[in-house]
């Protein structure tokens, strides 16, 4: 089941604009390894679910997979063969706004090779170029 909010303040949103880089959620915080986006995109709830399933199948229920983004943006789409006008269309799917640097997935509790292979599979399901990162230096 793709993720979506349980409650929202407004039913529909404007498209908005994404510029710049991620200033939060841009480092590995919960797991040992992470998958970081290198591009800007709307990552849909289906893509996130596909990534989660890919990681879960590869890891055979070992370790823990964290999804660091949540699809809280409703994207509306007019039905096919519909004339323009008559107001904004209904929500078609939900998406997470992702900027360069955003950590999408993290994995904990598995060896490095397994985590890297799992995240490589997850990266195939993502709409952006991604790279694998580890925990960074702490002071």
């Amino acid at each position: 089941m793709p993720r979506m909010p349980k409650r929202t303040k407004y039913r529909k949103q404007q498209r908005g604009r994404m510029k710049g880089n991620a200033t939060s959620g841009n480092y590995v915080a919960f797991g040992d390894f992470g998958l970081q986006s290198l591009e800007t995109a709307w990552v849909t709830a289906r893509q996130l679910e596909a990534g989660r399933i890919a990681a879960a199948h590869y890891l055979h229920r070992q370790g823990k997979v964290f999804i660091r983004v949540f699809p809280d943006k409703p994207i509306s789409k007019k039905p096919l063969e519909t004339r323009m006008g008559k107001g904004k269309a209904d929500t078609d799917y939900w998406a997470a706004r992702v900027k360069p640097g955003t950590v999408l997935f993290e994995i904990a509790g598995v060896p490095e090779l397994a985590a890297k292979n799992a995240l490589a599979r997850v990266a195939m399901k993502m709409p952006t170029r991604c790279r694998l990162i580890e925990r960074r230096l702490t002071v």
């Binding site: 880089n21 991620a22 200033t23 841009n26 480092y27 970081q36 290198l38 360069p100 640097g101 990162i133 960074r136 230096l137 002071v139």
Partner: peptide
């Protein structure tokens, strides 16, 4: 060392 600043991808100091 009191603080480290990283670039936007969080890799380089």
């Amino acid at each position: 060392v009191k603080d480290l600043q990283f670039d936007y991808l969080g890799t380089n100091v």
